[in-house]
Design a protein around this nucleic acid. Sequence first.
DNA 1: GCCAACGTTGGC
DNA 2: GCCAACGTTGGC
Length: 157
Amino acid sequence: MKHWLMKTEPDCFSVSDLANSPNQTTFWDGVRNYQARNFMRDEMKIGDLVLVYHSNASPPGVAGVAKVVAESYPDHTAWDKNDKHYDAKSTPDSPRWFMVDIQLERQFADVIPLGELREIKSLEEMELLRKGSRLSVQPVQKKEFTAILKEADRRGL
DNA sequence: GCCAACGTTGGC
DNA sequence: GCCAACGTTGGC
């Protein structure tokens, strides 16, 4: 089983929105970056665990945990001219963008702020914390995932 | 709102 | 294939 982190802007879609979704499940549409797409399309498997990260928030941080419940399939929002992430180069015959379904596992009572993550020694090499890191779907080491859950428990979240 | 870092586009 | 210009991300 692999571990991942996926970013979302809570003004657009937050962990609370996931909690209020039918079956607490959603399709992760709108990813328009090839590296992030490849992780979803090629490597994310049912049962993988996902840290849900709130970006462009105050504070930014990890807001909960979800699990993959459907492996990748074409992101149909790319075909919708009215969608913010419309891409004329993606078609039903030749889809360019893919998504997975995730289901909420655990919503933290508060986000674990980015600044606190930076204080945790075992997260020193985490992709999220690298300068200039923008990848919206990224692999997480098991030890990093464990350390973050441990921090959530320590905080009683 | 600012701006550094990054990814993509497109002319050559 | 190079690289300048541009658009986006995301912390602050």
